[in-house]
Design a protein around this nucleic acid. Sequence first.
DNA 1: TTCATTATATCCCAAATTGGGATATTTTTA
DNA 2: TAAAAATATCCCAATTTGGGATATAATGAA
Lengths: 68, 68
Amino acid sequence: MRLKEIRKSKGISQLKLALELNTNQNTISRYETGEREPGIAELIKIADYFDVSVDYLLERTDNPKMQK
Amino acid sequence: MRLKEIRKSKGISQLKLALELNTNQNTISRYETGEREPGIAELIKIADYFDVSVDYLLERTDNPKMQK
DNA sequence: TTCATTATATCCCAAATTGGGATATTTTTA
DNA sequence: TAAAAATATCCCAATTTGGGATATAATGAA
């Protein structure tokens, strides 16, 4: 996941992101370290929050935005 | 997930898909009925097998292909 | 139609994975 | 360098998962 990179580019902390997504800071940390992975619903929440495609979030494309 | 629709458009059975993805027919069935959901690795396997974007698979875009 | 075959859904269960609270560690900054 | 902020890790109960087995549904040939 490109989560850490995206989050940092927006300049927000794990804690702030966690609050925005109604989860915990440790959960975000574990997504970023790859220790755990989000389910689909969470994946989509993250992509939507940052306004990027899931494919981009998963490092499957260089283009951040999904096609409509 | 748009899995059932995509699979049918390719004219293959759950069993054949399961064999291609090294899993079981009942697992595919449950993805299609929404009873269970795949992890990220499986999601990507499915998208790659059908050559569609994860966003398309997840019904987040009308365009099947991801951008490179 | 009926019977056989193929396709799909569901049951049970052990194992793996998850999220949260608490806390430790690391990083930043005053 | 001490306090504060940010991030990582520990433990654990609870949820979720995949697989084997099997039930149900759909297809189609005779």
